[in-house]
Amino acid sequence: MRLLCLVLTVGLTACGQQEEEARAPSAAEDKSVPVVYTVNYPLAWLAQQLSAGATSVEFPAPTGEDPAFWKPPPEIVARYQQADLVLLNGANYARWLAQVSMPANRLRDTSAGFAGHILHESRSPVHSHGPEGAHSHTKAAFTVWLDLSLMALQAESVAVALQELLPGQATAIEERLATLQQQLAQLDTELQSVAAQLEGAPVLYSHPVYQYLQRRYNINGVALHWEPDQFPAEQEWARLQALLQSHPAQLMLWEDDPLPQVAQRLAEIGIAVVVFRPQGNWPAAGDFASNMRGNIDRLRSQ
């Protein structure tokens, strides 16, 4: 009898449901052009190249912000929530995603296919509290697209997601993917060739964002934590001098043009500056391919 009561309760609370069903799923809104949101510029560029105007590609990070650490306000999160497709970089990029609610079925982790190739680094001391035992919080290196072979895999993942979104354009997307991968392969070959000319010479990075560049192109680099728009404190210069004893670099890759006085002082100690833009955010001019070619040309000219 309890079972009967339970079933009756469960069922009767649905009284009126049938009348309400007329207003169920409102998803059939007019969506002539699907909206694709991304968490960084390289993915936005891939989506633009592959959809060729068939989608509205949005990447709303403000200019000058590093998208990896940007925290969108609630109204922008709401726009991400309503997108038809959200392209994620994976590798714990855009940490704000872990702190918000998102429609999981519209998310596409573009690096899920090569999760085993993600580089990890420990950032916090090992600690323990409570019964779960000792643990430390590790962080993944996230600029995966600087390994252009991985970016080609990301392009594949974006293409699959777009084909699901635009089934009528599957063939066209496939063709654009082939062209795009050819373009990326060419840049990859050029970058390998330029990096090979370094012949394992020590290199410095202004910031720890070049892990994938280093691994893919066999660059012998060490990362500092210098910002392009700041003059490093004297102790940072002293640390650099100490580092040069074991790692005599004559080349330093920067995310952007450093302050002239920083470049001057580096030149005085025999270190040439090369701007190699990761392009996490929208470029000031050109697109991803042209800016990557600029990176390669600047590296080649050294």
Partner: peptide, 24 residues
């Protein structure tokens, strides 16, 4: 659950806004 549930069941808000941040 995830936001997909609301769409799947056709649930609509009468007041306020959708879940955005953890803990809401």
């Amino acid at each position: 659950t995830s936001l997909d549930y609301f769409e799947f069941r056709g649930l609509e808000l009468a007041q306020g806004r959708q879940l955005v941040s953890l803990g809401e």
